[in-house]
Structures are given as structure tokens and as C-alpha cells.
Design a protein around this nucleic acid. Structure first.
Length: 542
RNA sequence: GGCGGCAUGGCCAAGUGGUAAGGCAGGAGCCUGCAAAGCUCUUACCCCCAGUUCGAAUCUGGGUGCCGCCUCCA
């Protein structure tokens, strides 16, 4: 069995072969840090984190690098609004990024280069492009001459001439800028509409508005500094880098001239990744990345979630606010992860209340399987959970465990088909939940303890590959909860005895009253065929 | 207008030539004084039309609908 992945470059699934056996160099386009991350970002980074985890599980040593864009017009705009600086705004949202990602159990990259730390590499790259006659300076700006790179358009599958026709249709109304040109945005501060603001410092990419460009599709590698903006000295004068060049430079500095996998949102294919290829490959003469992978968008009511449409929900908003659809509960971060992984990564997913509640409940099911050892390990005599050889059983995996791993792998090998992989996890989790319920209700298991042990261990292992884990805090509180139950035990036993007496005298009204009383405290009673009554805490378990 | 993608049950979503995984949500029954759990059963004309084939959700052609990119965007 071999791993196959869909390469945006060829628009086909291809077998995965690394540049160096056993090693994967992987670069992920990160965020521009001017605001909190929304669900679109969450999806992207959950997906690529999962890909990275899977590659490692498959035995590859993965070097994973993800950048922060911390030089950008939007950051500057935010800094002006907050009477702050670009650096301060960046720091704030980088910190927020890490907080959000940690909650989603996204593992840290090996490196997080920032544009502001990559100026040397950026300038070197621009210089080399200039030497090769592909970049040209114009009044303090430097542009990339798109027509000098024969391969331009190979990733996005478009031709410059085709685009020109389309672009002209969009840019035909430059007059719309004029009426508002002397109305700063503060003239309508109460407006929450995310209308494109015509007073932003940078004009839209209107070819006619940038006469410095030789060709309308040329793009900026370096931008001359405007007054009161941060700048860096350069051979072309004071200024700052364009957006695309930073990734070319950071890939080269952090991973080398050629990498295995370059990933990012599908909305980055053009122009960002196309330009990145043009920049890097024109200099090195080598293909930049062997595989280009792009995740699908998160939609809201059929439309892409995006800043400009204003239809976004931030990660922290979704996780922190009690939700009506969840009857006032908060959305579990792992349920968000599940929501993302329940779709194949290239397909769009719709963010709806139904999807949220479905994911939340699904996570409860999976969690019941994951906490099986914690809940029932004692009952099954699993005393070695903490010890090093606790996984010894997996040396000789059972048929069920082997098949689960095999099915999981063959799904994931097929272009990271996580929905298929999840089906395997759910089958294991549901069986464990069933077995646990039987123990609760009958007092003993109807399954062989070591078989269950293997199924549980397999579930935990495979879930971890997808980053679906019961994290520390939750695990601790679950244990705490079971400890509490012990404390109240005598009181409960007394009530059960009273109820048993009532039942024996057929006083069912009293018997039901006591049942309801305990139920209100979260205690569920289980009458046994032999007339005795068992109980357990927690009525929520489905 | 150009390029790309998607259409499977109430919702989500696998399946890429041999008569439909899984999740969520439902229905019926057995069991129970009532419960809880368990068990059994149960819900698909795979967007439409034509073609290839012994056989297609799966391949080919045409159509319809939706989405993304072409402008900052995960």
C-alpha cells in the first residue's frame, strides 16, 4: 500500500515520493496577523496538522515550517486604528494564534519564520531576480516581470491572455473611487458593513493605476516606503517587501531550494502560490515543491467564509460562547476538529448549526471510546496502564485491531481521506461504549478483556494520528467526577435500599420518586434481573 | 468571459465497473412495574438525458444546478 495524494500542480492523484527517502520537507502558508483566526483558518491548520501527524505515523521524519506574515497593509491599517504599531499588532495576534491552535490540539511547527526576520533572504532573492533580468526597479518599487517566466500559470492552470480578458471586465469602473476620495472611513464609523473600503492606502490592483508596471500582471517584490510607514533599507531605497516574496525566501532559508510538500488554502493558488513558484524557480532553476496541496474553504450558507464578506466566526468566539444549538453548552474544541475532519480536506464544508451539534454529539461518542480504559480499566483488571509495557499486547495485535489499522491506513493513504478513517474510529468507539454499558449494567463484561484492551489501544493510537485526543484537563475532571461519586456513595446506597423496599411492597409511586430524586443528582439506577439495583453517575451518556 | 471543482438517504459523508461504509437524526419490536442498557428489524429510483458494457453511483458525451479562483484572503 502506498500513499497517494492529489497534487494541484498536475490536478491528479500521484504516488508520494520524497526527495530524500524517509524525510519530508513541508511548508505551510500561515496567517497574516492582523486579527483573530476564524474557522477558515482553523480548518486549514487542522488539516495540515493532521497531514503532518499522518506522515509521521507513516514513518517519515517531517520538517514542518509555517510562516507568519507580519508585514502587510492590513496590519498597518489595524495599527493606525488602534494607535499602535505594526510590530505590536503582529505580536498580539501571533500570541492569539498560538492560543487558538493549542486548544485545537495543533502541534507546533518546527519553525515559524516571520517576514520581518527574513529581510536578508528576501533582498537576496530580489537581487538575484534582478540579475537574471526578471525583476525590474521602478521609482523605488521592484516588480516581477511575469512574462519573463515561461512557466507562469502552471499551478493555477491559467494563461495570462485569458486573465487579461477577465481582468479588464472587472476594472472598468475606476470612477467609483472618485466620489469618496476625500471622505475618510471615519465618516461612517457606525457602519459594520464589510464593504471594500476605497480609502485604504493601497489602490486596488488596477493596472491603469500602476503605470510603473510594464505589464498589468507584474507584481511587486518590493514597495517603496510611504510616509509614516515602517521601512527597511535596501538597494532600491527604503521600503518593504511585497507579499509573495516572503514565502519564497522563507522556504529557501528554512527548508532549502526544493521541498516535498507545499500546502495552503485553495484561495492561495492564485496569485500567491503561482507567484511563489515564479519567484523561486526563476532563481534556482529547480521546481520549488514536488507536491502542492490545497484545502477547501469553509462556507456559510453556501458562501465562502471570509473577512471581506464579513460572514466569519472566530475560533475563540465559537469555542467560548455558550451556544443555543448545544442547549447552552460550549462547543468542544475536539468537536471542531471532528467537524473539520468529517469532510475530505479538498471539499468545501458548510458551517451550520446542525453541523455543530452533530459534531458535538459525535465527539461524545468518540470520547466515550477513548476514555474506556479510564472508566472501565479497573473493572477489567487492567493494572498496567501507566507502565512502559502497557502496550505489550499490541505486539500481537488481534484480528480486529489489525483490520482497523489497515482500513484506517488505506483510507488515509488515499489523499488523506479522513471521513473514511473516522468510520473506523467510530466502529471501535461504539463497540467500546457498548461494552462499557454492559459492564455498567450487568456488572461484568461480555467481551474478552485483552481483546477490548487492543481495541481501545488501537482507537487511542489512531485517534491521536488525527489529533483527536481527550486532553489533560478533561481527563482529570473525569477522574475527579468518579472520585466524587465514591464520597456520596453511602447516602445513595441508603436511598436505593429505601427504594428497593418500596418496590418490594409495590409502592411504585415512592419507588419512582426516589429514582427521580437521584436522577436529578445525575445518578442513574439500573435494576438487575435478580432484584438488586446498580447505579452509576452521569445520565448524559447516550 | 477564462480556469478549476462539486452534485450519493432528513442532515453530513465514504464508495471510482459487479446491485450502496460511517456519523448525526428518526421509526418498529423484544426486554422492564416504570426506567437504563442491550438485542432485532427498519428509512437511497446515487441531479437529468443519451451512450459504452453481460453489468455503472462509478467510464464517455451532452445538459442542469451550486461553489471557488481570476482583487487582500486559509
Amino acid at each position: 500500500m502506498s500513499l497517494t495524494l492529489y497534487n494541484s500542480l498536475s490536478r491528479r492523484k500521484e504516488p508520494f515520493e520524497t526527495l530524500t527517502p524517509g524525510r519530508v520537507l513541508m511548508y505551510c502558508c500561515g496567517v497574516t496577523v492582523y486579527d483573530y483566526c476564524h474557522l477558515g483558518h482553523a480548518r486549514s491548520y487542522i488539516v495540515w496538522d493532521t497531514v503532518r501527524r499522518y506522515l509521521e505515523w507513516r514513518g517519515y521524519a517531517v520538517q514542518y515550517v509555517q510562516n507568519f506574515t507580519d508585514i502587510d497593509d492590513k496590519i498597518l491599517k489595524r495599527a493606525r486604528e488602534e494607535q499602535s504599531t505594526m510590530a505590536a499588532v503582529s505580536e498580539k495576534y501571533i500570541a492569539a494564534y498560538f492560543e487558538d491552535m493549542e486548544r485545537l490540539n495543533i502541534r507546533k511547527a518546527n519553525a515559524y519564520p516571520r517576514a520581518t526576520h527574513a529581510l536578508n533572504g528576501i533582498q537576496r532573492l530580489i537581487h538575484e531576480l534582478e540579475q537574471k533580468g526578471i525583476a525590474y526597479a521602478a521609482e523605488g518599487d521592484v516588480y516581477y516581470s511575469v512574462r519573463s517566466f515561461p512557466g507562469y500559470g502552471k499551478l493555477s492552470g491559467r494563461k495570462l491572455d485569458d486573465m487579461q480578458a477577465g481582468a479588464s471586465g472587472r476594472v472598468e469602473v475606476p470612477e467609483s473611487n472618485h466620489p469618496e476620495s476625500n471622505h475618510p472611513e471615519s465618516s461612517h464609523p457606525e457602519s459594520n458593513h464589510p464593504e471594500p473600503n476605497t480609502s485604504v492606502p493601497e489602490p486596488p490592483d488596477d493596472p491603469s493605476a500602476e503605470p510603473k508596471k510594464k505589464d498589468p500582471f507584474d507584481f511587486a517584490l518590493w514597495k517603496a516606503a510611504k510616509p509614516e510607514e515602517p521601512f527597511w533599507d535596501s538597494p532600491w531605497g527604503a521600503g518593504r517587501p511585497g507579499w509573495h516574496i516572503e514565502c519564497s525566501a522563507m522556504v529557501r532559508d528554512g527548508l532549502g531550494e526544493q521541498i516535498d510538500i507545499h500546502v495552503g488554502g485553495a484561495d492561495l493558488i492564485f496569485p500567491h502560490h503561482e507567484n511563489e513558484i515564479a519567484q523561486s524557480e526563476a532563481v534556482t532553476g529547480k521546481s520549488l515543491a514536488r507536491y502542492w496541496l490545497h484545502n477547501g474553504m469553509v462556507n456559510v450558507e453556501g458562501e465562502k467564509m471570509s473577512k471581506s464578506l464579513g460572514n466569519f466566526t472566530t475560533i475563540r468566539q465559537l469555542l467560548d460562547e455558550p451556544l443555543a444549538i448545544l442547549e447552552g453548552d460550549r462547543f468542544d474544541p475536539m468537536a471542531l476538529r471532528l467537524f473539520v475532519l468529517q469532510a475530505q480536506y479538498r471539499k468545501p464544508i458548510d458551517f451550520t448549526p446542525e453541523a455543530i451539534s452533530s459534531a458535538q454529539i459525535s465527539w461524545q461518542t468518540l470520547k466515550a471510546g477513548l476514555t474506556f480504559a479510564q472508566d472501565f480499566g479497573n473493572a477489567l483488571g487492567w493494572t498496567d496502564l501507566e507502565s512502559d509495557d502497557s502496550r505489550a499486547g499490541l505486539q500481537n495485535p488481534s484480528e480486529v485491531a489489525q483490520q482497523a489499522v489497515q482500513r484506517f491506513q488505506s483510507s488515509m493513504d488515499d489523499d488523506f481521506n479522513s471521513p473514511g478513517a473516522l468510520a473506523v474510529l467510530f466502529e471501535l468507539a461504539k463497540e467500546l461504549r457498548r461494552a462499557g454499558n454492559v459492564i455498567n449494567h450487568v456488572g461484568k463484561s461480555d467481551r474478552d478483556a485483552s481483546d477490548l484492551r487492543q481495541e481501545w489501544q488501537t482507537l487511542v493510537d489512531l485517534s491521536t494520528v488525527l489529533g483527536l485526543e481527550v486532553l489533560g484537563l478533561e481527563a482529570a475532571s473525569a477522574q475527579e467526577a468518579s472520585g466524587q461519586a465514591q464520597v456520596n456513595s453511602p447516602e445513595i446506597e441508603a436511598m436505593i435500599a429505601a427504594r428497593t423496599a418500596a418496590r418490594q411492597s409495590k409502592n411504585f409511586a415512592e419507588s419512582d420518586r426516589l429514582r427521580d430524586l437521584l436522577k436529578a443528582q445525575g445518578i442513574t439506577l439500573i435494576d438487575q434481573p435478580d432484584g438488586t439495583t446498580r447505579w452509576r453517575q452521569g445520565s448524559a451518556r447516550p
